[in-house]
């Protein structure tokens, strides 16, 4: 559906994208994850036809960005990071305006506007001015505005910025429904939990380069990020720890009351590890488990924290 092949883009002396390549299949929910300034918005602006790459090839639905601009514009819907709406117009008036940019008959725009208003749960507020809406409601209309012309690809640039948890969930459900209806979604964010929940495939971008791409499981494998088990114990004696060390790679913290170990899969390994602990006569007070998440994957792949 989308092919981004060896794309580079520079702003004056700063190279925003360096030979970036990735592919998104039809109907996929693709998350582009990276810290601020990593190149997410530049990637999305290229896909949105707002800027042209310096080098490389971009195909959307089999059409080249350089040759089929107008056709591509009909196939994509963009949800910018900003609330790109007219505050002094009502939700319905905003949607009627945005729909009018896509060569659709007025009656069709009206039908679609009511349809998307219902979809985002704001049909009863259609006559209210945008300036009277909460941040979350504005975000929902921001998304609705991109759906009027029934795009095949939805491009979202951090669509939940500054949104309360309830509205965020509403947006997630909406996007999941759209994706299930067959829309290909490209989603940029620096919130890992959003990517983990929503995306089939994840591209990790850092300093204008794709560090890795794949499903969460594939990224775990590639990055070699491990799950972590932490055991809070009674004081571990040297004899007990020596006994334990014959069978496991547990690390004893300095105060001798905490044991940690990295493992491939907590579920598969935890019972065996606890047996070794019992055999070494160590008393466990509590157990903490930490699955390898995107934060640790990102750290492994880029050597930096995602929210630096």
């Amino acid at each position: 559906m989308i092919k981004f092949n060896q794309v580079s883009k520079s702003y004056n002396d700063r190279q925003a994208l360096k030979n970036v390549s990735f592919q998104v299949q039809k109907g996929e929910f693709f998350g582009l994850l990276g810290p601020n300034g990593a190149g997410k918005t530049t990637t999305l602006n290229i896909l949105s036809t707002l800027i042209r790459p310096d080098h490389g090839e971009v195909l959307i639905d089999g059409l080249s960005l350089g040759e089929n601009l107008k056709d591509i514009k009909h196939r994509i819907g963009i949800v910018p990071q900003e609330i790109a709406l007219y505050e002094e117009l009502s939700a319905f008036e905003n949607l009627m305006f945005w729909g009018s940019l896509y060569d659709m008959p007025k009656a069709q725009i009206k039908t679609k506007a009511l349809e998307v208003l219902e979809m985002v749960g704001l049909l009863d507020r259609r006559g209210d001015l945008i300036k009277t809406f909460s941040g979350g409601m504005k975000r929902r209309i921001n998304i609705a505005s991109a759906l009027l012309h029934a795009p095949k690809v939805l491009l979202l640039d951090e669509p939940t910025a500054g949104v309360d948890p309830q509205s965020r969930n509403h947006i997630f459900e909406l996007l999941e429904n759209l994706n299930q209806a067959g829309i290909t979604v490209i989603y940029t964010t620096h919130y890992m939990e959003e990517v983990e929940r929503l995306c089939d495939t994840i591209g990790i971008i850092d300093s204008g380069q794709i560090a890795a791409q794949g499903s969460l499981e594939e990224l775990r494998r590639v990055s070699e990020a491990k799950d972590i088990i932490v055991l809070n114990t009674e004081e571990v004696t040297k004899t007990s720890f020596d006994e334990l060390s014959n069978h496991t790679a547990f690390v004893l913290e300095e105060d001798a009351t905490k044991l940690t170990i990295e493992c491939e899969n907590i579920g598969n390994e935890i019972s065996g590890l606890i047996n070794h602990i019992n055999n070494a006569k160590i008393t466990i007070k509590s157990i903490e488990t930490h699955q390898a998440d995107l934060e640790s994957i990102f750290l492994k792949l880029t050597g930096k924290q995602l929210r630096d």
């Binding site: 949105s48 707002l50 609330i83 790109a84 709406l85 007219y86 945005w98 940019l101 060569d103 505005s145």
Partner: peptide, 13 residues
Amino acid sequence: ESGTLNRILSSPL
């Protein structure tokens, strides 16, 4: 500044 221009520019106009 509000992003509406970008949204218009990404339309077929």
